[in-house]
């Protein structure tokens, strides 16, 4: 008799990956029963992707979306009991999905939608403790690291992804972009009172926020912004970030205790 652990693993594989795991007869799995679970698995994950990627669905149409989702499900196992975590790699999958090679902006739109989806369910953010500033000489503030809140994200693209996303929101009044090429955009994802918004960032704030997202110091992030916009106003931007609750923490340089 197959052990309970081996049988359990074999059942999971037979459901999720039927092409590679035809179950052996001694597992006692009825074909009709297995078919119920295989159908639940495939349809459940495709529906999950459709829920997380509504703009992508509008861009390619429902039928095509479900076909590409089916391919994604074949190649990407679920790694969590929480379905809201499934589908994070769809943007990367589209990079190499030959049937959308003529739509090169799709992958970045998908990456933006994933961050929007993540933001919706993200933990409610904590506010940074500004008291830590007082523990460090102002001339060393450049060594601080500012962390973006969990419901905030910055997504850069060579395509007008923020405008594309906005144009597909009901009642946004934003028209589709006039041209796709030569109109790179960086999108900022935020959440306020539970509603997730996307906005287009100017190039200097975009460079600054992307740098913060990568975890660099305030000084390095400011340098990145100043390279793109010599008139970059750090103080005004930090004021906005704090006022809009977009930062979760301020970290002192290594070795400094609060």
């Amino acid at each position: 008799m197959t052990s309970w652990t081996d049988w359990s693993s074999a059942l999971l594989e037979a459901i999720a990956d039927p092409e590679r795991h035809a179950p052996s007869a001694n597992l006692g799995l009825s074909a009709a029963g297995l078919a119920v679970y295989r159908n639940n698995y495939r349809v459940g994950l495709i529906d999950t992707l459709a829920y997380a990627y509504p703009v992508l669905g509008q861009l390619v149409g429902e039928e095509f979306f479900r076909a590409l989702a089916r391919e994604y499900v074949k190649h990407h196992a679920s790694h969590s009991g929480n379905l809201h975590r499934y589908g994070a790699a769809l943007g990367d999958f589209l990079d190499s999905f030959e049937h959308v090679r003529h739509l090169p902006y799709l992958a970045d739109v998908a990456r933006l939608e994933w961050r929007v989806h993540h933001s919706y369910y993200a933990a409610d953010s904590t506010t940074p403790d500004l008291a830590v500033l007082a523990t460090l000489e102002p001339e060393r503030w450049g060594e601080l690291r500012f962390e973006l809140a969990d419901d905030v994200a910055v997504v850069a693209s060579s395509w007008p992804i923020a405008t594309l996303w906005l144009a597909h929101q009901p009642d946004s009044g934003v028209p589709l972009p006039e041209r796709l090429g030569d109109s790179a955009e960086t999108a900022l994802v935020t959440r306020s009172a539970g509603t997730v918004s996307v906005e287009r960032l100017d190039s200097a704030p975009a460079a600054f926020l992307l740098a913060l997202q990568q975890g660099v110091t305030l000084e390095a992030a400011t340098d990145a912004a100043l390279r793109l916009g010599p008139s970059f106003d750090l103080q005004a931007l930090l004021g906005q970030l704090l006022q809009r609750n977009l930062l979760s923490s301020i970290t002192l340089p290594a070795g400094e205790l609060p």
Partner: peptide, 9 residues
């Protein structure tokens, strides 16, 4: 789930 995969069912 097993060590390598989840089936959300």
């Amino acid at each position: 789930h097993s060590a390598t995969r989840f089936v959300n069912d």
